[in-house]
Amino acid sequence: MPNKGNFILNLYPSTKFMLPLFVTISIFLVPSYLFAYMMLPLCIAIALIAGVAKQFLNLIVKGLLLLVLFIFIIQSVIAPGEEIIWSWGIISIKEEGVMLSLTLTSRIVAIASAFLLFFRITSIRDISQALEKVGMSPKFSYAILATFQFIPEISKRSKVIMDAQKARGVETEGSLLTRTKAFVPVLGPLVLSSIANTEERAITLETRAFSTKGKKTSLHKLHKTKTDMSIQILVIIFIIFLAVGRVMIWN
């Protein structure tokens, strides 16, 4: 987890959520794909301040770049239009298709980068704690917390089991068929260890009186500061300003 002494990381979860909220609303209010694409540099700048730029860019490159390129190419080819920019056989790229692709991919990049950054700078524990403070059931907030923690835990556990298999002489690297054969023996221990982990969690929760009625307490405390309130108000004002601009100028 990044250094909690950082200004960005110390903000309240609802304040951090104003970023994806602002990005999602603003890119539909401002009819410009350049504005939507500018949300990515904004997110990178925030990631640099928060000290998570390396992890954030890694997520963008591995999880978003190929998807956006694929959508851009496909949309440019299949979209109808009259102004042909380039053609090869039955394949043709039209100006209308390119403009539509730019609009679509810019919004995908903006929204995806904002939400990726939000979950990069906000721990799931903080999110569940904030949800409980606004009245959500502790059981439901724990279900959210456990769901987000499940995939990383499964990934780590599978890596440990694969390393153990490799230490026993099982070939785990090579062709796709070899890796598939090596993965099959992992499924059994992985499923059994996941079931055991679930049982341990249930026992731990019961020892902490999780299912009892009454007000719950937590060692993990969250506090909303004046800075959080100021940022939220400024973002709301800016969204209203963009909405007025949409009606008066861009409409």
Rank of each mutant, 00 (worst) to 15 (best):
60 I>Q: 02
168 R>H: 07
123 S>G: 13
46 I>V: 15
15 T>E: 06
55 Q>D: 14
220 H>I: 11
15 T>W: 03
21 L>S: 10
141 S>V: 01
187 L>I: 05
76 S>G: 07
44 I>T: 05
247 V>E: 02
242 L>V: 04
181 K>N: 10
245 G>K: 02
180 T>G: 09
75 Q>N: 14
86 W>L: 14
164 A>T: 05
32 S>F: 06
43 C>L: 08
127 I>Q: 05
156 K>E: 12
172 T>D: 08
193 S>A: 04
128 S>A: 15
62 K>D: 13
143 A>H: 04
131 L>H: 04
1 M>T: 14
72 F>E: 03
24 T>Q: 03
12 Y>K: 02
33 Y>F: 15
227 T>F: 03
2 P>G: 11
200 E>K: 13
224 K>I: 11
10 N>V: 02
119 F>R: 09
4 K>H: 15
50 A>Q: 01
150 F>P: 00
27 I>G: 01
45 A>E: 06
131 L>S: 04
233 I>F: 11
234 L>D: 06
14 S>Q: 10
5 G>D: 14
239 I>C: 06
208 R>F: 10
100 L>T: 02
86 W>H: 07
101 S>A: 06
9 L>G: 03
101 S>W: 01
206 E>N: 10
148 F>H: 04
220 H>L: 12
157 R>E: 00
104 L>Q: 03
172 T>W: 12
36 A>V: 09
41 P>D: 09
77 V>Q: 06
21 L>R: 05
120 R>I: 14
88 W>H: 11
213 K>A: 13
109 V>G: 04
204 T>I: 09
47 A>W: 01
48 L>M: 15
161 I>Q: 02
186 V>T: 10
190 L>P: 01
153 E>T: 13
235 V>C: 07
18 M>Q: 02
19 L>P: 00
44 I>L: 15
13 P>M: 08
89 G>Q: 02
241 F>E: 04
92 S>E: 14
202 A>F: 10
55 Q>G: 14
21 L>K: 04
